[in-house]
Design a protein around this nucleic acid. Structure first.
Lengths: 207, 207
DNA sequence: AGGTCTATTGGCCTTTAGTCCAATACGGAT
DNA sequence: ATCCGTATTGGACTAAAGGCCAATAGACCT
């Protein structure tokens, strides 16, 4: 596999800080993209693959903590490392509770940042892996018809074909047909596997 | 249900702080038990039901953070609220990353502590609920014989009786018998349910 | 109008799962 | 020595799952 270096996003309104971080990180072979404000990042950044966000807390209008909340709201899960000149404990508590990897006060040692980035990269790799698995399953679910999805949700309750037929008001034979297609499309050969797949993507059994 | 008030443990080496907190919390009807050091808490506290730990960071010998780590190691999952007179950001980051509910610097407003406790109680109730479910399942698993457990781990892979028989080098008939007993003892009527139960307690399918 | 996708159902047949009854065998406890 | 729990297996039988072929019907697209 052609493992690309992780991408590191920097969002900081201070030009000199951005430049400095950019230089440091590029010297370590990371791919770097920086933004002067949160909105710019949300509009332009393409968060794909393994990536990390280095985020300044204090910025005009849209603070770093606001950006973090907005990313949570949008289900964007990339690890965040906060940096700040004037941080306090409640601020750091909030950041970490919202999932940040670290919260560094300036000035900090280069090594500290590098360590945090390493942690974030590991986390991102994990998230990436989960995301790919998730998508692989979702793709299969997307080719199910409405009816098939419906039948699947009953099948994973463990109910008998006969009972499902009753629930849906159609014949048992038809359930068997749908059920067979579900197994094909989901690429499984047993209900056990089907239950596992649906659990992973959060599909709940009916009723 | 006779919902008892949550129990709040206090671990702080400062007598006056313990007394003060104790008075405050008792006035709010919480059940309170305090300890002057971490070891005393580990030895004597009975962490059952809904409970919360208010923990001083700086203590002689065994620090609050050390106690938190020790509890993680022992799989004791009760929500922790740190309080400290001389905290810093890295300290709070470490505490929260290890799962603490909050990290309060003295002096703090009573209200702030009360809020944190409310959060912690909610969390503890959630943990308690999960724990009870977990135990209910574990209790059933504990009445399985070795052989039955072994068969169950193959059943939840979705394998056919025939295939399991081959794996274990015994007849298919015997698998059916064990399998039947597993379903009885686990109190389920379908493989789907069995898969769900085993997932919840972290039992992995064989091979 | 013809083609495609989907839902529906039937018949036929095979494979699996699971239950009841019965029997053998081994190890440990009384 | 005997009883109990566990593992093992067989026979017989019922029920459930699922595959193959075929057919009908409605919706939607070209």
């Amino acid at each position: 596999m052609p493992s690309v270096m992780p991408k590191i996003f920097i969002v900081d309104d201070d030009d000199s800080v951005r430049k400095g971080l950019e230089r440091l990180l590029k010297s370590l072979d990371y791919r770097v993209q920086s933004f002067a404000c949160a909105q710019e990042f949300l509009d332009q950044a393409s968060v794909k693959g393994v990536c990390v966000l280095i985020l300044d807390v204090r910025m005009p209008k849209f603070s770093g903590l606001d950006l973090q909340q907005e990313m949570l709201r949008r289900n964007m899960s990339l690890p965040v490392i906060f940096i700040t000149g004037h941080g306090d404990i409640p601020m750091s508590v909030r950041a970490i509770k919202s999932g940040a990897i670290d919260f560094l006060s300036k000035p900090f040692k280069e090594e500290t940042l590098i360590n945090a980035i390493e942690q974030a990269v590991v986390k991102s790799k994990g998230l990436q892996k989960e995301y790919l698995k998730y998508q692989a399953i979702r793709n299969r679910i997307n080719v199910l018809t409405e009816r098939e999805l419906q039948v699947m949700k009953w099948v994973i309750t463990g109910m008998l074909n006969k009972q499902i037929a009753l629930k849906l008001g159609i014949s048992e034979k038809t359930i068997k047909v749908h059920r067979g297609r579900v197994m094909q499309k989901m690429e499984v050969v047993s209900v056990a596997e089907l239950v596992r797949l649906t659990e992973k993507v959060g599909i709940k059994p009916s009723s």
